[in-house]
Design a protein around this nucleic acid. Structure first.
Lengths: 233, 233
DNA sequence: CGGGCAGTTGACCCCGCTCAAGCGCGGTGG
DNA sequence: CCACCGCGCTTGAGCGGGGTCAACTGCCCG
């Protein structure tokens, strides 16, 4: 971890993040003043599952994975954060230790807002508070959906769903590849399966002309068919 | 559904529910005035997955199950509500249709608070708002945990975990039975497995002297061993 | 050039799902 | 009162999805 050369202004996040638009000029200035911006590289841990967090993180650039550690240290990824997202608030607001570990998978710039400041914003600004509530309730809906998926879909269907999800959330690079790069193991721990199963299914999708694979980069060729595989309900 | 003979006072819920203690006398009076109380029997549907909800429900008595419907109409239960709990707020606050169906599994008395009133409380009363936020963030942590469990634990471990959870949340009747009565199918759709698997494992637990079974009633004999089976991490 | 790690492939086998048949109990109607 | 029906529960048999283990490859990097 090191200090960023240039502190990103909150305005730069404002473009992508619906949250901070609720702040007044004064509030925005205060946040800009107290926030703490740092640069992290792939592999850096922001916080560990079970630790207390002392504020929230706002992603300026890069990608963070959030995972729980299970049997024999096997990871289960529950979500990713990308530029414009905030994380850490679940633990803060529920007044519990972090339920996941946050780890950088693509070099990231993060702004840290101390909890006192964040709580103050929530208490003072009803619109901001409502936006946070909306976000956490939305995430709860996502989590419920994922419980159903893992319980009832097979691995092939879940992998297709995850590919569609990554495509929707991260989009494509100019040359058509998914704008997120995961190891086979990471993909497996998001889908909730073994690395070998992911590999076999990816090459099956490839020979079915649904995707192209170039080492760690994946190009979605036929998003419609992939969505169809995942939509079994 | 029919009107309750006697409208339960909010004070009666206050005993069990940490939420409404944050309300002022005036707010409490208003809620008491606008709320709408009804009686439901086992099998009644409060709302369907995909529908909009127009307020929140507070459980005065009885038990509600919340489930999603998946492949071939197979249910996946995601949680239960018991006296003192509120539900419906996820959909309301995220401004999305309900992500689960709410169905009565034990005859219930429910108070309904219209959304305008509920939103007003959240906007006016910071402590109440914070309590709701805390609750939704806590549920999010539970959901994340359950994703890990379904992804990594086997059925035996999950069933043990669910039994321990039901024991903790619903307690025992005077004669030592679990204070919630589920069909084998409901148990299966909470654990995320087939009915037959639940039956086989229950009788295994029974011959291991961990539980006793009397038709639909289950008595936990050795909660420590059951917890040990579920704690594989 | 060698070590190490991610990725790949094949073989094997077990957990748990499905299907089918039988059982037990409670409700209903003749 | 009894016979019948239906639903929930139980048990057995079979099998296939997918997890695990092992061996090999290929690329990166020191």
């Amino acid at each position: 971890m090191r200090k960023l050369d240039e502190i990103p202004s909150c305005e730069s996040c404002l473009k992508e993040n619906f949250l901070f638009k609720h702040l007044t000029k004064d509030e925005n200035d205060t946040v800009s003043y107290v926030k703490n911006c740092n640069f992290f590289v792939r592999g850096d841990i922001i916080y560990h599952e079970g630790n207390r967090v002392s504020g929230i993180y706002c992603v300026n650039k890069g990608i963070i994975k959030h995972f729980k550690t299970g049997i024999d240290g096997k990871e289960q990824i529950v979500r990713f954060s990308k530029p414009g997202d905030i994380f850490g608030f679940r633990s803060l607001l529920s007044d519990e230790p972090a339920c996941t570990t946050a780890k950088v998978i693509e070099d990231a710039g993060l702004c840290f807002i101390p909890s006192e400041q964040f709580i103050k914003l929530i208490n003072d600004n009803a619109a901001f508070s409502m936006a946070i509530m909306k976000m956490s309730c939305h995430e709860l809906g996502d989590a419920n959906q994922y419980i159903l998926d893992i319980a009832q879909k097979n691995v092939r269907e879940r992998l297709a769903e995850i590919l569609a999800l990554l495509h929707k959330n991260f989009g494509e690079t100019p040359d058509g590849y998914l704008n997120i790069s995961l190891t086979r193991e990471e993909l497996a721990s998001f889908v909730g399966t073994a690395t070998e199963s992911v590999i076999r299914l990816l090459s099956e999708f490839k020979s079915d002309k649904l995707i192209e694979i170039n080492r760690r980069k994946i190009k979605i060729i036929d998003i419609q068919k992939i969505k169809k595989i995942s939509d079994v309900y």
